[in-house]
């Protein structure tokens, strides 16, 4: 296969790349649904935005519209803020849940002490 013939079908190849990325989207969405922990879901969302940036760049090529690169840039910006917000949310959730469960811990300790005494 000559270089020219490969370049001749580069449009088609770009479309193939987009299809591959769609496959990657599907796999990531699977992890997003499966979880099981909040952290897993947030990592999957982070990955989704990374994939979206790549998909935008490829769309800019297949459609010939360079505005899609601006979209990719905006997505990269938003992804950072979103991940930071998710992390903050997760830490705060820990603090809240922790407070509620501190007393269960105490109870367990008390029970253990009682058992030792008896």
């Amino acid at each position: 296969m000559s270089i020219e013939s490969i370049l001749g079908i580069s449009e088609t190849l770009n479309t193939v790349l987009v299809l591959l990325i769609i496959g990657a989207f599907a796999l990531t969405a699977l992890r997003l649904m499966k979880g099981p922990s909040y952290a897993d879901r947030f990592v999957a969302i982070d990955m989704l935005t990374g994939l979206a940036v790549a998909a935008c760049a490829l769309t800019a090529l297949t459609t010939g519209r360079s505005e899609f690169l601006d979209v990719a840039f905006a997505l990269a910006l938003i992804a950072f803020v979103a991940t930071a917000a998710f992390a903050a949310f997760l830490e705060r959730k820990v603090a809240v849940t922790d407070d509620r469960f501190r007393d269960n811990g105490k109870q367990k300790a008390n029970k253990a002490a009682q058992q030792e005494a008896s």
Binding site: S37, A39, D46, A79, F80, A87, A88, L90, E91, V94
Partner: peptide
Amino acid sequence: TIPVASHLLARAAYLSGAE
């Protein structure tokens, strides 16, 4: 940004007791 974001997320995940 990705190193910063993933560091934040990893810290939060660790603190949340992730396995």
